[in-house]
Nucleic acid binder design. Structure first.
Lengths: 338, 338
DNA sequence: GTGAAAGCGCTAACAC
DNA sequence: GTGTTAGCGCTTTCAC
């Protein structure tokens, strides 16, 4: 940390290089019309006085920030991290940088966050989920930038959508168990109404069970989202204590599914012999666990890269109408359910 | 997405509310000296025309961005996610927002990233690790903002430090195994020299083994960092094939340690009966695995919150000299090594 | 390929 | 508690 004397500006670089500030500005852009000789002289002059380009001034004058705002429920979640990576990698070549915020699975927090992010004047905004407060919706509608909702397929999207139906995905899982002759199926999820994707999955479970004419009341609430491995284990304990004849369990995510599996192991309950287990998300743990966990792969990385592609398409004028990109989660049947 | 007519500015709000732009500016600040009545009128006027405060202009004029730049090796890592959360929560009350970038465990990428981040004029910058390219170092030294290196205890810090010695931490693990009478100890890590923390851990392993007069050549390179569960499992497979008399394994992280554990389970190798396993990081999987994994908790959340506290202290003038905050990782001896 | 003038939308500094 | 003036450091626009 050096002394806090005033940082050099383009004017300083220009003086040193014997050109106008405008030429320095051009030298720092990609395509600009500066002769190679001048550019090199300028960049060297800049380096010699430790000049660092000031985006804040550039942002204001050009009315461009090269930010893409993104909200995710949690930083500490491998699925959302994959989506972020798909986004980030897809935007990096264009010099677009992600401005990230997390909502803690709370749409009220999302509202605060979205407003804060929009103040930074991003070029586009990507949000996780399709349910928002009325004010969040209004803010996004008025933002005059591309809006992309992900990880869901809302009935009335704000703008673009890249996602899948959480309810339909769980229906596929129920169908799988029923086809294998299992009927006493339980669902382990979070307390109602916080995590909207978790709620959609629980409701998808209930609807699918009813469609099969089966009892849809084996619902274990494992706590506030996100449900951890530990909470999954505790939930499985309660399930085994209260409804010991349960034949199969669908957990809201692979993390809770793995926790449930370990609880079975601790109690000597055979998986899948006495009870089958399935998760959601195709986290690495699902493949590596012994037995490996049946799960759904929602292609989180692809959600991010498709969203990134969409942003570039809109910014370049190739996409002028609201897009709806449906991702089809893949059912992965593994040892924990066969 | 509404039509792209020009977004309202403070001047528009001022006109509508019958005050000067300056009063509008004050109404949008926390502490400012505006009467409650005027403030409410202003905020309502703003809301009625969909005004959203423009940070880009504020940033330039006030020479303050309320950004704290952070670089981490990977987004998809629970340890770094915890550090981020500690940082984020510690800074949020002051209205400081994190500007995040990931380096992919590559100090050349870190250099590009740091320059890009500094252009945004953050109030402080937090980097993971204490090894950087010469240019990164120079950029950080000249930035005239607080610099905090984390997850390491470099000999010659750039500014402030919040971290621990990765080598010393692994030494404690080796001591634990030796005290239990185990001597044929292997280390599973990444290919040399990419992930500097991983390299430090491997070198700490080698030094500790030699200090005990033990063979330090059981080193399995599991691939490019970060080492996944799968790679940990594959590495354990190779270890069991080539050095079947190994008594204990220290893995560079809990994820690879868990992978190693599952490989033992698949092969019917008793853990800890025939082989003891330890990881690093105290990820949730370490506690939930059966058997639970011996590991080291480096208090990643605390690293973040201490860094956040340090930033506030420096910005408020309470801390004027470079701080060195040493975190002491805790050895957690669990079933996998006893 | 380069330069001059003007201004992006706020807020620092000062006045009252 | 509120207003006026000037300007942050770039880039747009136009000129040559």
């Amino acid at each position: 940390m050096s002394t806090a004397r005033k940082a050099p500006t383009m004017a300083d670089v220009a003086r040193l290089a014997g050109v106008s500030p405008m030429t320095v500005s051009r030298a720092f852009k990609r395509d600009s019309s500066v002769s190679e000789t001048t550019r090199e002289a300028i960049l060297q002059a800049a380096d010699s006085i430790g000049y660092v380009f000031d985006s804040t001034a550039s942002n204001l004058r050009s009315q461009k920030t090269d930010f893409v705002a993104v909200t995710i429920p949690s930083i500490n979640n491998a699925n959302f991290a994959e989506t972020l990576r798909g986004l980030s990698d897809g935007l990096k070549d264009r010099g677009l940088q992600i401005l990230l915020g997390y909502t803690d699975y709370d749409i009220a927090e999302e509202e605060r966050l979205v407003e804060q992010l929009l103040r930074r004047r991003p070029e586009a905004i990507v949000v996780t989920g399709g349910r928002h407060t009325a004010r969040t919706r209004r803010l996004l509608e008025n933002a005059a930038i591309p809006v992309i909702e992900t990880w869901d397929l809302p009935d009335a999207p704000i703008g673009h959508v890249v996602g899948f139906s959480n309810a339909a995905a769980v229906r596929g899982m129920v169908d799988h168990f029923v086809a294998r002759g299992l009927t006493r199926i339980a669902f382990i999820g979070g307390d109602a109404d916080r995590d909207t994707r978790g709620t959609d999955r629980r409701e998808g479970f209930i609807a699918a069970m009813r469609a099969h004419g089966l009892d849809a009341t084996r619902l274990i609430a494992a706590g506030a989202p996100p449900i951890s491995m530990r909470e999954g284990a505790a939930a499985m304990g309660r399930l085994l204590d209260t409804l010991p004849d349960t034949e199969a369990v669908i957990a809201v995510s692979d993390l809770s599914a793995f926790g449930a599996l370990t609880e079975c192991q601790r109690r000597g309950v055979a998986v899948p012999g006495r009870i089958s287990i399935a998760g959601f998300g195709d986290y690495e743990i699902a493949e590596v666990a012994v037995p490996a966990l049946t799960t759904l792969n929602p292609f989180p990385r692809e959600i991010g890269s498709r969203a990134a592609g969409l942003i570039l398409d809109v910014l370049d004028g190739r996409q002028t109408t609201p897009a709806r990109v449906e991702i089809r989660p893949e059912l992965l049947i593994r040892a924990s359910s066969r």
